[in-house]
Amino acid sequence: MFFTINPFGNMNLHYSIWPVLIYPYNLPPWMCMKEPYVFMTLHIPGPKGPCHDIDVYMRPLIDELRTLWEIGVETYDIYAKQNFHMRAALLWTINDYLAYAYMSGWSTSGKLACPYCASNTSHCRLSHGSKTCYLGHRRFLPFDHVWRNQRSQFDNTREIRLAPKRPSGDDVINELSELR
Rank of each mutant, 00 (worst) to 15 (best):
V20S: 01
V20H: 00
V20Y: 01
V20L: 09
L21T: 00
L21M: 13
Y23Q: 04
P24I: 00
P24R: 01
P24S: 01
Y25L: 11
Y25S: 07
L27M: 10
L27C: 03
L27S: 02
P28N: 06
P29S: 12
P29M: 06
P29D: 11
P29W: 03
W30C: 08
C32R: 13
M33D: 12
K34D: 07
K34L: 11
E35Y: 03
Y37Q: 06
V38C: 04
M40H: 06
M40K: 05
T41E: 06
L42S: 12
H43L: 11
H43C: 15
H43D: 11
H43R: 05
G46S: 07
G46A: 05
P47A: 11
P47D: 13
P47S: 13
K48W: 04
G49S: 08
P50S: 09
C51T: 00
C51K: 08
C51R: 05
C51L: 01
H52I: 08
H52L: 07
H52P: 00
H52N: 13
D53Q: 06
I54Y: 02
D55Q: 14
D55V: 09
Y57L: 02
M58I: 09
M58L: 15
M58N: 03
R59W: 00
R59F: 01
R59Y: 01
L61E: 03
E64H: 10
E64N: 08
E64C: 05
L65Y: 10
L68A: 03
L68T: 00
W69G: 00
E70A: 05
E70Y: 07
E70K: 09
E70L: 07
I71H: 08
G72E: 02
T75D: 05
Y76A: 01
D77Q: 01
D77K: 00
I78C: 07
I78N: 08
I78Q: 11
Y79H: 04
A80M: 10
A80H: 09
A80L: 10
A80E: 14
K81P: 00
K81N: 14
Q82K: 14
N83V: 01
F84H: 10
F84I: 03
F84A: 07
H85C: 00
M86V: 03
R87T: 12
A89D: 02
L90T: 09
L90Q: 07
L90R: 05
L91A: 06
L91K: 08
W92I: 12
W92H: 08
W92F: 14
T93Q: 15
I94Q: 13
I94T: 15
Y97R: 10
Y97K: 11
L98Q: 13
L98H: 06
L98W: 05
L98K: 14
Y100T: 15
Y100C: 15
A101V: 06
Y102I: 02
Y102S: 09
Y102H: 14
S104F: 11
S104G: 08
G105D: 07
W106P: 03
S107T: 08
T108D: 04
G110F: 15
G110N: 14
G110T: 14
K111A: 11
L112D: 08
A113G: 09
C114Y: 06
C114T: 10
Y116M: 10
A118I: 12
A118V: 11
S119C: 04
S119V: 04
N120D: 15
T121E: 09
